[in-house]
Design a protein around this nucleic acid. Structure first.
Lengths: 348, 348
DNA sequence: GTGAAAGCGCTAACAC
DNA sequence: GTGTTAGCGCTTTCAC
């Protein structure tokens, strides 16, 4: 690490040893909390460390350890149709990623493991893979939601420990965490039916994402089980703007819809805006059910009835799985599926 | 780096040398693009690298180089009154950070420098400082907006190259980039006046942030220059929800306001929502000017007239300053101030 | 133009 | 319980 001031290099373990009048090995033991060190010597060394302001050099340490005590949260986007800026705007505009980060931090931080976030749109994939191969981090939490995203496979080919945030689009041997998306969509369908809605429709997610597919097919099959077979669907891309446009489109073609399932809260917020413009009352004229239970669900009017995914818990589990596979090489790929629940608020 | 599969360690430079029938030094020269290598040998070595799938071990390299070719974008939040989750929700809900990242990436990526994002709320400050001291990165782009944030000073004390995203709350010797906040606020004031508004008010930013202070004082002093001295102000915290509440508060106390300057677009979007609920037409009844020109300004109705900060360019400049101070140790702290401009849309 | 050799700062056997 | 020693994988003088 270059120092812009101070000229001198940072203190080394060697200097601490000299200062404390012990060997390097002993200092190393103190730093690594090896129990077999005489308490008085330990204390002596700790004083020396404090006096000198010593901090272990991570490069030297990880050269021998092969550990960096840090992991990356890589947010992948395979699409090439978006510019960098659009992608980043989407990330930093969707509360989902904040929840993910919070959940992961919760288990990583107490373990002293650093978390760094890396956005990876298609043009950056190469650089991100290089970052991972170079060994900057011990493992990766990979957020990838497109069926065609090549990154999950490329990351596993690197033999870097990794955990995926959702069922992989293609079958690859990698640990992942997910919710039962179809079951969540079924909850939404049944809630709308219970509210007496029969002319139901949906604003779906992108059909090139497993989550988008599953929520749509789950919704439809739940309705089919109740004899409702004709369910209009308009796809969005999980952004608020797309929800707004999709709702406009949907209502133009099916003005009599009285129940609406929207595959993400952000899109639902957009839909709510369109409905307000069209003079539709929610839930009286149209009941709306969202998906995620993100912060957006509470921030809008009326507040959204939605399908809650326990995102924080899921991210925590991802982190736990990752730590396990870092610490026990040879660890088998494992997957954990969470349940989603219906949160009833004002919109349905 | 632990490998979860494959058992074997990644190939080393030594193996490449053996494979190519040259010395380690030569392979190293090829990798580091040292010009004085015989072209045929170079090619030979490159073939060996490709055949073996060699990637330099970053720990070994940076142990001697003291470079990691990566920098951190640290987003700091000194407040202890917020939970982790609130902070992360704020970050991943405010388009500002995406623009910052995009702007920095634009200059870092072509240089082969990795960028990692690290959210740092108060309880994490200690861990982040440790991360920086350990030398995981060569420098840091520090996003800090609170006057009382101790992180900027702590980071400079580490002697890690750093660039701040705004004028530091306390004077410390650190490079920074900023816009002339007062001048921006003046543009807003003059625009409202030019629109014939005289009963103007403002929803200000937090007064413990220089940006919040400057936008308020700049707005007031511009109006004072035109003989308007009584300017109601209600503070928010730059979030949409706070803008909504502040507008409600403001209008309750000053129902006759006809011009409103809101210190961030996100708050302005919230204010717009309140105004709509109150049946106020924008801009007919109340003209509204935002600040930032974020993506939110375009996504709302009516679209926001706002003060544009060239955030991407600013972040790019931060990255350039940082690279300079990494590459030329002893580099003096430097600051760059950008101009803001008024973007006229529908709301004023 | 290329190779030999000496570290970079740390950890982990292995002796004592 | 502590010290000695041999590397970890790479870069970089310094000879040749």
């Amino acid at each position: 690490m270059a120092r812009s001031t101070g000229g001198g290099r940072p203190p080394t373990l060697e200097q601490v040893a000299e200062f404390a009048g012990v060997s390097r090995a002993t200092v190393s033991r103190v730093i690594n909390a090896v129990p077999t060190v005489d308490p008085s010597i330990r204390e002596n060394v700790e004083r020396a460390i404090a006096a000198i302001g010593y901090v272990p050099n991570i490069a030297a340490r990880s050269l021998v350890n092969r550990r960096t005590d840090s992991v990356a949260l890589v947010i992948s986007e395979p699409g090439s149709r978006h510019y960098d800026a659009d992608f980043l705007n989407r990330i930093f505009t969707d509360p989902y990623f904040g929840r993910l980060t919070a959940g992961a931090q919760e288990v990583l931080r107490p373990q002293g493991v650093h978390l760094v976030i890396i956005p990876a749109d298609a043009p950056a994939h190469h650089q991100v893979l290089r970052y991972l191969r170079q060994g900057h981090v011990d493992g990766v939490l990979l957020i990838s939601s497109h069926v065609a995203d090549p990154l999950p496979r490329q990351v596993t080919d690197l033999h870097v420990p990794a955990v995926l945030s959702a069922r992989p689009g293609q079958p690859i041997p990698i640990s992942f965490v997910d919710t039962d998306q179809r079951a969540g969509a079924r909850l939404a369908a049944e809630h709308l039916l219970a509210r007496g809605r029969r002319r139901v429709a949906t604003i779906a997610g992108p059909q090139d994402m497993p989550a988008g597919e599953d929520r749509l097919s789950g919704f439809r099959s739940a309705l089919a089980a109740h004899g409702i077979h004709d369910v209009p669907a308009v796809p969005g891309d999980f952004t608020q703007a797309s929800g707004e446009a999709a709702a406009r489109d949907l209502l133009a073609r099916h003005p009599d819809v009285d129940g609406l399932f929207v595959a993400s809260d952000l899109m639902a917020v957009g839909a709510l805006r369109t409905l307000a413009e069209l003079g539709k009352r929610v839930p009286e004229d149209i009941a709306v059910v969202g998906f995620d239970d993100s912060s957006a669900a509470l921030a809008c009017r009326p507040q959204l009835t939605t399908i809650r995914q326990p995102v924080e818990e899921m991210a925590g589990e991802m982190a736990r799985l990752l730590l396990a596979s870092i610490r026990e090489p040879g660890h088998l790929a494992r997957s954990v599926i969470f349940n989603s629940t219906l949160v009833e608020r004002e919109s349905a």
